[in-house]
């Protein structure tokens, strides 16, 4: 496991990418006692438009605070994918939602196609949980953050009455990804 990692979570305003970044940062920072930097960037739109949150996770204090070559890019829309995949580290990881990203870029790395929105809508029963489905998928693919830490960070912030929904979303994302991609492999990176 590398001790310096850069993640970018991107999508459209309203898909919960900012909140997902906060979950990751708090899971790594508070539950795993790592150093973190979380940067959020979005356009003027309250809904729509490409937006992203970026998290750096490190065992050492983080000097330069911006993501330069992400180890992982999550893209929830085509626009976000087109805009944010290019500086992916060689050999890096992309997670895409095939419902929204039809045109997958040719990258030097591995692409995981996970129907995040479909799982949220059809299996969990609420499309807005797609960001939490994505975090479940992310912890299945990488071992930088334990599913337990991330789940705890999510439940710290979820409104009362939605804990079960969020836990379900996380677990479905995790399990789907484990079954589709990870059965014969241990988690990468």
């Amino acid at each position: 496991m590398s001790d310096y990692l850069e993640l970018r979570l991107s999508g459209s305003g309203g898909q919960g990418m900012m909140l997902a970044g906060t979950f990751l940062a708090e899971a790594a920072g508070i539950y795993e006692d790592k150093h973190i930097v979380l940067c959020k960037s979005y356009g003027p739109e309250a809904r729509g438009g490409a937006c992203r949150s970026e998290v750096i996770i490190s065992s050492e204090p983080i000097v330069y605070p911006e993501v330069q070559e992400p180890d992982l890019v999550l893209a929830m829309t085509q626009e976000a994918c087109d805009k944010y995949y290019e500086d992916l580290k060689s050999g890096g990881i992309m997670i895409i939602d095939p419902e929204h990203v039809r045109d997958i870029p040719d990258i030097n790395g591995k692409v995981y196609e996970i129907p995040l929105t479909q799982i949220a809508r059809d299996t969990v029963g609420n499309e807005i949980t797609a960001n939490v489905v994505a975090l479940g998928a992310l912890t299945a693919i990488v071992d930088w953050i334990s599913p337990e830490a991330l789940k705890s960070a999510i439940l710290d912030r979820t409104p009362k009455g939605t804990e079960e929904l969020n836990e379900k979303a996380f677990n479905y994302g995790y399990n789907y990804t484990m079954e589709k991609y990870m059965q014969s492999n241990s988690p990468v990176v």
Partner: peptide
């Protein structure tokens, strides 16, 4: 704006 909007632990 870099520091004002970013989070650290």
């Amino acid at each position: 704006a870099t520091l004002s909007q970013m989070s650290e632990k």
